[in-house]
Design a protein around this nucleic acid. Structure first.
Lengths: 135, 135
DNA sequence: TCTTGACCTTCCCATCATTGGAAACCTTAT
DNA sequence: ATAAGGTTTCCAATGATGGGAAGGTCAAGA
C-alpha cells in the first residue's frame, strides 16, 4: 500500500504521515526499491489510532505515550485511565473558560442595541480596564 | 512612555506590542531621537482593548475588525453585535465538540478497570474505526 | 566624568500541527 | 513514447508567543 492509499484508509494526510515519521511518532515505513513508502494493515491501524486521538484533542505528545502503552504488552490499564482522566480535566477547564467568555459576550451583546446607534457596550467594555470586564 | 511602561500599563508584553506593530494591528509608534518607541494614553488604551479581546478569545483578525469599528465614528453597533454573536456561536460549537470528547473519554475511563489488568477499552476504542467511536 | 545596570533596538530561532509548493523521480495506461 | 498522476525531499508559511544575542541608550551613583 502506497502512502496515498494509507492516507485514504487512515484519514491521515500523506503530509502528516511523513511528518509523524519525521518526529518519530511512527517508525520509519518500509520502502520499495524506488524509495516509495509501503504500508500494511498494522500501520494503517496505528495511523487511525493517532487520528482518533487527535480528534479527541490529545496533543501528539500524549498520543505518543498512549501508543507506547498500546504497544507495551505489560501495559497497566490504570496508566491509560489516568492519562484519559487527566485529559478530561484539561477539557473541562477549557470548557469552563470558553463558557465564561461566551456568557460575557452574550451579556454584552444583549445590552447592545444592535441598531444603527453608535452606543455599544461591547466596545466600551473592551476599552475599559480588565477588572471591570463583567461589572 | 517607553515600551516597557506601556507593556506594564496595558498588560501586553513588549514583544507582542512590537509584533502587533509589525503586522499592522496597531500603527507604528512615535520614536525618540534615539529610536525608542513612545506611547501615550491613547495607545495604551488601544493595547488594553486588544488584550481584552484576546482574553475573550477573539482571533487577532477579528480584533482588527473591532478596532476599525472602534476608531470609526460612524460605526454601527449592529456590526459589533454581529461580530460578538458570531464569536459566541464559534465558542458554542467548540464547547459542544469538547464536551463530546470529554464525555467519550469519561465513558471509556469508567469502563476501564483501572487496575493492573491489560484490558482497556480506551486503547481498543482509539484503535477502532472512527464511526464506532462511542459504542 | 566614568561606570554600572536597566532599558531599548533589530534580527533570528523555536514552538505545534498542518498545509502549501517546487523540482525531480516513479509507475501505469494509452 | 508520452501524459497523467503518484511519490520523493526540501523549504516556507501559518498564529501568537517566548527566548535570546548583539549592540545602542539612559539615568543614577562613585
Amino acid at each position: 500500500m502506497n502512502i496515498g492509499e494509507a492516507a485514504r484508509a487512515s484519514g491521515v494526510s500523506a503530509k502528516m504521515i511523513r511528518y509523524y515519521e519525521s518526529i518519530g511518532l511512527v517508525p520509519a515505513a518500509a520502502r520499495t526499491n524506488s524509495g516509495y513508502r509501503t504500508y500494511g494493515n498494522t500501520e494503517v491501524q496505528i495511523l487511525r489510532f493517532i487520528r482518533r486521538g487527535r480528534d479527541l484533542g490529545f496533543p501528539v505528545e500524549t498520543i505518543a505515550a498512549l501508543l507506547a502503552l498500546w504497544r507495551d504488552r505489560s501495559r497497566q490499564s490504570s496508566d491509560v485511565k489516568r492519562l484519559a482522566l487527566d485529559h478530561v480535566a484539561d477539557l473541562e477547564r477549557k470548557i469552563a473558560e470558553m463558557q465564561a467568555m461566551a456568557s460575557t459576550l452574550r451579556h454584552l451583546a444583549e445590552t447592545c442595541a444592535g441598531d444603527g446607534r453608535p452606543d455599544c457596550p461591547i466596545l466600551d467594555d473592551l476599552g475599559s480596564s480588565p477588572a471591570k470586564a463583567c461589572h
